[in-house]
Design a protein around this nucleic acid. Structure first.
Length: 726
RNA sequence: GCCCGGGUGGUGGAACUGGUAGACACGCAGGACUUAAAAUCCUGUUCGCCGAAAAAGCGAGUACGGGUUCGAUUCCCGUCCCGGGCACCA
């Protein structure tokens, strides 16, 4: 607060009167609470915000210095959404005349002569003042409709909706009267919450104009085909007053200069990202070290820190959407803030605390954070792209600026592991009732008898395949105790979806049973063998037997069930060393690039080959043991001791790859005719183009395909393939 | 709707930089060992055609439709489907 990083403002929350609480977006389904099915509306509450927008440019710049995937950088860049444009004030002509100006943000001031209508976000307070007497009822009806809609629904809406206010904006250059509309596709939180719509150049504006029959002005001549917007910047402007004849790209600056000179507009860099809402009306969260004195928020002095959550008997929400802390008389008496911090408060900097966990003076001493510095490798999913991973980057920059730490990016390298997904099950509740309808009874559009149906997650553990155990469902949660069911063929059938595995989706499975049955090494290796780390996939244990069999086979290289240790201290053959060193190379390469599934496959190939060779040689098997340690640490450690070593395998010297053991002198080349592989010919790796051509063309298997004709070209890629073009 | 990923045999996947598509496994089928089972081992397994069978051969094939290239799972354009995110799940 002292650095103006945090401030109070008004924010909209999902308010459920019946539950008396604020709900998260994913606790709201079809405008009703997931729990109980009660109506949810938007409500304005005082909230805390963090000024992350002040860091927007540095968050963009920092991306160039860190090792994140391009996709991740792209997501963060798009989320921050920096754009260059202008704010323009339009004079407003309305019946009430209480709104004098309409300020819009646009990246395309060059198209100002093509503005055919304005669109204002419905939630802006002064919107009702725009409405003419004739339009007042329609406007109010539309505002009520939007009030019931979640942001998520609004953004996903394909249908075009909106209403004319009855007011007009005046084009400052040609005096044209431009109708002002309201539509939910314009969001209050972006730009000024109002846009100038240019249907010939913007697809959404064009569709809106089409839908409501608004005439379209063409300012780009033949670049506009009359049936589709063209967002080009390269067209030469027509019908555009002082901009006519200019290329659009060049006209942008000219238009802004003119607007600035006239005092009705200015250059503006805009960000899509908004400041971060930082308060929650919940109990479980860090309390704010803030005391309210006569309506002014004052930070607690350091002597009163740390402020800890009070013990409570009940977690019931406080009055009027306040958090549970508002119910604690001792807390309220001290005039302490009753909101708490969100989950990302802690997750933004926990890794710093890990560096110095017992420090009672500071979150982390400067010495400790200088020593450990950045997180070298952070493994996390892309679902954190624009939340946690952005917040923690901002948090780190703030701490850096204040001198508490010496680096301004928290993570050096980020690897996005895929999510293990689960198969979720859903039940269908008729909106506003306690009636649950089996899947097969729903209409084609997912409704029941014309009524909206809420799709709710149900615990996979009380569903057998797709059939719900209705009795277990009634016992599952108090809300469902009185549930009634409409069955099909005597059964309640659920629908299913593959989603990320999550407690809130009730689709989690517990790995303990598998660890119990196969051991931790098998489980660990199986997870790695499943597929590339960065790929998401549904959890499935079908293949675990294979990994288990492999580890048993690996064990048998060293140990015989009856005769015990089989390893002999004898020199390895060239063949055995080749197998070993191929494995060393493969494991090293694959591990370096996080390709654990192919590394496991490499181990399997190596063990299969050594088994075939009946290799029992200690020099080979000892190195292999060290190699596999990161993948199967328990078995490795045990065999290490059985081999007679005193210390831990973790301290053993890691095997070094030596090229001399795997060197080959010839390769079996695939030979293709016109790109189709027809033969395999073994040729020395030293062979040159001419030599290869001779050998290939003399080959009877190839000659057959040439039918006596000379080839056009022979393409020879050393150590890869040979292609004969006929 | 917008942003970001992904789509390859019956299944998980491999092919790293445009160069033999299906490595390694699972499953399945057949066989060996066993009184039997488990465990283990061997053989086969993309689809279609040819063929008694084996071997060999031919054709098609990496979501779908086009394109670039001697050559495309890989690059380009378009479409469809699935997953993640969209600001109060963290």
């Amino acid at each position: 607060m002292e650095y103006r990083l945090a401030y109070c403002g008004e924010g909209e929350v999902n308010w459920c009167e019946a539950l008396g609480t604020v709900l998260a977006n994913d606790e709201v389904v079809n405008g009703v609470s997931e729990r109980g099915g009660y109506p949810v509306v938007k409500k304005k509450l005082r909230q805390w915000y963090l000024r992350i927008t002040e860091y927007a440019d540095r968050l963009l710049e920092g991306l160039e210095r860190i090792d994140f995937s391009d996709a991740m950088k792209e997501m963060q860049t798009n989320w921050i959404g920096r754009s260059y444009g202008a704010e323009i004030d339009f004079e407003v002509k309305s019946e009430k005349a209480t709104v004098e100006n309409l300020r819009v943000y646009t990246t395309r001031p060059d198209t100002i002569f093509g503005v055919d209508f304005m669109v204002v976000a419905p939630e802006l307070e002064w919107v009702p003042d725009l409405a003419s007497a004739a339009q007042a009822a329609a406007v109010q009806e539309y505002l009520d409709y939007v009030q019931r809609r979640s942001d998520r629904e609004r953004m996903a809406e394909k249908k075009i909706s909106g209403v004319f206010t009855g007011a007009y904006a005046i084009n400052p250059f040609d005096g044209r009267e431009i109708p002002i509309w309201i539509s939910e596709y314009v969001l209050a939180g972006y730009g000024t919450g109002a846009i100038m719509a240019v249907p010939c150049g913007d697809e959404r504006d064009y569709k809106f104009a089409q839908h409501f029959g608004i005439p379209v002005t063409n300012i780009i001549g033949s670049h506009f085909n009359g049936s589709e917007a063209n967002p080009t910047k390269e067209a030469v402007l027509e019908n555009s007053g002082f901009l006519t004849g200019m290329r659009m790209r060049d006209a942008i600056g000219v238009a802004i200069d003119k607007l600035e000179a006239m005092g009705i507009g200015k250059r503006k860099v805009n960000y899509r990202m908004r400041d971060a809402a930082f308060s929650r009306q919940r109990y479980w969260g860090e309390p704010f070290p803030i005391r309210w004195k006569n309506g002014v928020a004052v930070p607690l002095p350091a002597s009163e820190l740390p402020l800890e959550l009070p013990h409570v008997d009940s977690y019931q929400p406080g009055p009027e959407g306040e958090g549970p802390l508002a119910n604690i008389p001792s807390w309220v008496a001290k005039e302490l803030e009753t909101n708490t911090m969100p989950g990302y408060a802690g997750s933004s900097w926990y890794f710093l605390r890990y560096m110095d966990p017992h420090n009672n003076e500071a979150f982390c001493s400067r010495d400790a954070s200088d020593y450990w510095a950045q997180v070298d490798l952070y493994i996390g999913g892309t679902e954190h792209a624009v939340g946690h991973l952005l917040y923690s980057r901002m948090w780190t920059k703030a701490l850096f600026d204040l001198g508490y730490i010496g680096h301004d990016e928290p993570y050096k390298k980020l690897v996005n592991q895929g999510m293990i997904q689960g198969s979720s099950r859903f039940v269908f509740r008729v909106n506003g009732t306690n009636l649950f309808v089996s899947k097969g009874l729903l209409d084609a559009d997912g409704n029941y008898g014309g009524k909206t149906v809420d799709k709710l997650h149900v615990d996979v553990n009380i569903v057998d395949g797709y059939e719900l155990d209705t009795e277990a469902f009634r016992n599952w949660k108090p809300d469902f105790a009185a549930a009634e069911f409409l069955l099909e063929d005597g059964k309640y059938i659920c629908s299913s979806e593959v989603e990320k595995m999550s407690k809130s989706k009730f689709n989690t499975v517990n790995p303990d049973d598998l660890v119990e049955k196969y051991g931790a090494d098998t489980f660990r290796m199986y997870e790695m063998f499943l597929g590339p780390v960065e790929m998401s996939k549904p959890w499935d244990t079908k293949g675990i037997e294979g990994v288990h069999r492999f580890l048993k086979k690996f064990w048998r290289l060293y140990m015989d069930e009856e005769k015990g240790l089989q390893v002999v201290d004898a020199p390895a053959t060239a063949e055995e060393l080749k197998v070993l060193h191929r494995a060393i190379r493969k494991i090293e390469e694959d591990t370096e690039r996080f390709s654990f599934n192919t590394a496991v496959s490499g181990f399997m190939i190596c063990v299969n080959e050594l088994s075939d060779l009946k290799c029992r040689k200690k020099p080979v098997l000892s190195d292999l043991l060290v190699l596999i340690t990161p993948y199967a640490p328990h078995i490795a450690e045990e065999l290490w001791h059985l081999l007679g070593n005193a210390g831990s395998v973790l301290d053993a010297v890691y095997p070094v790859f030596e090229e001399k053991y795997v060197r080959e002198s010839a390769k079996a080349y695939p030979v293709a005719i016109n790109g189709k592989t027809r033969a395999e010919i073994t040729i020395s790796l030293d062979a040159g183009q001419q030599e290869v051509e001779q050998i290939v063309l003399a080959d009877p298997g190839i000659a057959k395909w040439l039918e006596g004709k000379p080839p056009k070209k022979v393409i020879y890629v050393k150590n890869k393939m040979i292609n004969v073009v006929v």
